[in-house]
């Protein structure tokens, strides 16, 4: 195994561990922290299935953002949907045999790399050009966009310009996933793929310690996930129960 390969083995094991354990702990924290009062932003659904629908519209259509600012919605939504499609397509680097739907959309979905990059560029432009957004921007907010742009651009270049040895990449990750180090191939050394993988590792590591927590966070937001039924049901948290004695 080359030094690069060993480094990537270490990187991806560590990054995966941080991502999984970090996210699990965060989600556990959100789960365990009580929501002592009913605070859905009304008008809110009066049933649990209504809440599921509201959440679905938030996650799939970014409904609130749409009400809010059309440009941010456009760029943000395009970026996210392209991102999910790209990730879906990426399953083929990890599956053996490749799941039929993944294989089916693969040829088409590769073009979504452009949508993803355009969305990110739009968000970056807004962040730098609109004075209000610039005011609330910390360096990490810019770096986050650059990181994703870096991943997207290197990926797109590999796909459309300078191809890499996809078979080797896949084989490497299959070996990683099955903890099989004996026949582990070397990762390709073309700079685009190396940078792509390096940046992905960084993304995985910062995911649970950054604002990317919005992905699990949205599901735990009391103003969006609560049923509007406070007159019918009491909603006393454990710590508040102690006040009742």
């Amino acid at each position: 195994m080359s030094f690069l390969t060993i480094a990537f083995v270490a990187l991806f094991y560590i990054a995966t561990l941080i991502l999984v354990v970090g996210l699990a702990r965060r989600i556990r924290l959100y789960w365990k922290t009580p929501a002592p009062l009913k605070i859905p932003t009304t008008p809110a659904p009066t049933t649990q299935s209504g809440v599921a629908l509201r959440m679905f519209r938030e996650v799939v259509f970014f409904e609130s953002l749409f009400k809010s600012t059309k440009w941010t919605w456009l760029f943000g939504w395009v970026f996210h949907m392209a991102l999910f499609a790209v990730l879906f397509r990426h399953l083929r680097y990890f599956q053996e045999p490749v799941w039929a739907p993944v294989a089916f959309v693969s040829p088409l979905f590769k073009y979504l790399a452009f949508a993803m990059v355009i969305g990110l560029l739009g968000l970056l432009a807004r962040r730098m050009l609109v004075d209000r957004v610039r005011y609330i921007t910390a360096p990490s907010d810019i770096l986050m966009l650059l990181l994703l742009l870096g991943i997207g651009v290197t990926g797109a270049l590999t796909t459309f310009v300078a191809h890499t040895d996809v078979v080797a990449v896949k084989s490497f990750f299959r070996h990683l996933m099955t903890f099989n180090f004996e026949t582990m191939p070397n990762v390709p050394t073309d700079p685009l793929m190396v940078v792509h993988l390096l940046l992905v590792g960084v993304l995985m590591i910062i995911f649970p310690i950054s604002k990317l927590l919005h992905a699990p966070g949205v599901f735990f937001s009391p103003s969006r996930n609560q049923v509007d039924n406070p007159r019918e049901q009491r909603h006393v948290s454990d710590w508040a129960k102690k006040l009742e004695n």
Binding site: Y30, L65, T72, R132, D141, H214, S221, P222
Partner: peptide, 18 residues
Amino acid sequence: GKYRSLQVYLDSCVKCGA
């Protein structure tokens, strides 16, 4: 530790500016 709203809201903002 007492308010999920506070914990989730402080973590989740992406500074989208909406």
